[in-house]
Design a binder for these strands. Structure first.
Lengths: 351, 351
DNA sequence: CTGAATCGTTGAATCGTTTTAAGAACGGGT
DNA sequence: ACCCGTTCTTAAAACGATTCAACGATTCAG
């Protein structure tokens, strides 16, 4: 039924050790023997049993990755970049979706530990510090993605979310907006907290600007829609004139709610800016201004660091922080208002 | 460094066999011994080595799944449903993204074979029949998802795409449209071909209706946008008055292109219907009419069948086909035109 | 022509779990 | 006291690839 190295060895008339060498250190084997073994492999359709290989090697050739939401294009882009980088070293990535639930996150970590993964990339939701320490003791390094480590014990690769929040609100203010609502949540997610902090810092420098906070239950289109409807339900004088959404999914939900009733116009009545700059952002009802993160770079760097730590466990933890970038589209672009504080040339309007 | 059953056995003062029994057949072990073993496990922080377990069991506890595009919400929904169903039987799912590339698809199949997966769920792009036969000979069953099998040798779970295409075009015709463009591709994807076939069948019954076919390189927003721009570039008299997109991503791209220039209005000038009914569809510039598939049911059923085949390899292949459903939103709703052929009550307009 | 170095190959040991046949302990009935 | 039938527990044999010390065959320097 199943063909093993033993069968290959028998057919090729060599020992199992040689078969292994043909596959793993070809330079140790003479060309003629290698050819004989190779054709035996082909004839029998031999496929190496990864479980046996891992058992002997004491670690897997797979990297486990946990993200907050696979349906968020930001994370799939991230995963894809990580996958490409890992493939260069012959490793594969398995992707787990925590769905912003600590329990699911924990289940994946259990799975990864059982599988003796080569390493773990995680965009943590709950506080997994203890779990990660334990994994490391077991020889499985972890790198935090899109999040700075709370205790500097682990390497992390992230984007400066405080700066991003700052960029977003600064931009809204420069467009003449003074009553700004931050929409996002839950506050258990570090990115949300940081972006809010950046927003607060930006608003703090302007006494005429007020910043209101609307907490959502998750970073999804649905939750954004609910928040948008809540805003819509308020009396006209009581509505913000700008919304900074914690990510693009929220922003799209808000946009949908505001726009659908046809009463309010974005950006005329309410300016809207999101975060992540996912593909869908530019395809929205009104092309969405957003904060772009260097996603591919983030993913590649995370894998790079993980591999280095896997090779040398004694390596010190590193914190890599990238800077986000403002992308202006129609959802915040109002020439009339901006004229008051012109700090964005029209040419920076991106499609 | 690593703690094994041996260490647990030593600490608990029993043999390794007993430790294994505590974990896998608790009923074979006396309560007092079980408790002693359990506390040894906890004290040492023992975590079972899955590679060794698999090696012994000769098959993994993981199901491999390959989809055409992880960034398409339809597939992530599908994967999520499969995952939930698999978890009920203590199995996990690893998700591979073929990105509509035969080479990537093949790479994942190699990986799955090396890992001696419990089974494979695949939404095939290229012709993988030979590969799948080989997997089955090796004891790894496969179920085709969202695709009927070409040779009935494998079970499949799918939605009737011909019926879906029919529904879509029928609906457009009922709205008074006569010059319809099908946008989608490549034709290597069965779903695309089937939807087109359904579209043709629907159009065939109406001599006054013409159906034009625009092939895209992939089922993505970008490709849809390109197709939309191509339509826009044509002289006014030469444009279709309705577009049936092979999926919602394409539809969103088309919508974006048509809408952005502000020259054409959807649905007034061109009606637009997509396929899959992803969450984003209702969040689009103009809420998108679409063909909805019973995604969760699809995923669950696929896993169910896979598990049955894994348990009994002699089982005959089954083809399960679900029926799609029309969801009407604004992108195809034009009361004035529809009046000519009223077959859709206004109440069926869905938000 | 010899001894050493080089090269390719071998065979056995190893990784950690599960499984199975056999053995030990225990109690009840005679 | 002995036998028998349960329960529990044990020891050893898989599973399949990798690795490493050892070995035989060549080649080469002296």
């Amino acid at each position: 039924m199943s063909v093993s190295v033993k069968d290959v060895a028998a057919l090729a008339g060599v020992s199992v050790g040689t078969v292994s060498n043909v596959m793993n250190r070809p330079e140790k084997v003479s060309a003629v023997v290698a050819a004989r073994v190779q054709s035996a492999i082909d004839d029998l359709g031999f496929v190496r049993n990864d479980a046996a290989r891992q058992l002997r090697a004491r670690r897997s050739k797979t990297i486990g990755m946990i993200v907050l939401d696979v349906r968020n294009p930001f994370f799939t882009d991230l995963a894809r970049a990580a996958e490409d980088r890992a493939a260069r070293d012959g490793l594969s990535i398995i992707l787990g979706n925590s769905d912003e639930k600590a329990e699911r996150e924990s289940t994946y970590l259990d799975l990864f530990e059982e599988q003796r993964m080569h390493g773990v990339l995680i965009s943590p939701f709950g506080d997994m510090t203890d779990r990660l320490h334990r994994l490391r003791e077991r020889g499985i390094p972890a790198v935090l993605v899109d999040r700075t480590s709370t205790d500097d014990a682990f390497s992390s690769v992230s984007v400066d979310d405080v700066a991003g929040g700052n960029l977003a609100v600064d931009h809204l203010i420069s467009q003449g907006r003074t009553s700004i609502a931050f929409v996002g949540g839950p506050l258990g997610i570090r990115q949300v907290v940081d972006r809010l902090e950046g927003a607060r810092a930006a608003a703090a420098g302007h006494p005429e600007v007020s910043l209101e906070v609307i907490i959502t239950g998750a970073l999804s289109v649905i939750e954004g829609r609910a928040a948008g409807n809540a805003i819509l339900a308020r009396p006209a004088g009581d509505r913000p004139d700008a919304v900074f959404a914690a990510n693009d999914l929220i922003a799209m939900g808000v946009l949908q709610a505001l726009n659908m009733q046809g009463q309010l116009h974005v950006p005329r009545d309410i300016a809207l800016i999101g975060y992540d700059d996912i593909d869908f952002a530019s395809a929205a009802v009104v092309p969405l201004s957003s904060i772009r993160q260097p996603t591919a770079l983030l993913g590649q760097t995370a894998v790079q660091i993980l591999l280095e730590e896997a090779a040398d466990p004694a390596l010190a933890a590193r914190q890599v922080v990238f800077q986000p970038e403002l992308v202006v589209r129609e959802s915040t672009f109002s020439p009339d208002r901006a004229a008051a504080r012109p700090n964005l040339p029209e040419s920076s309007l991106e499609r």
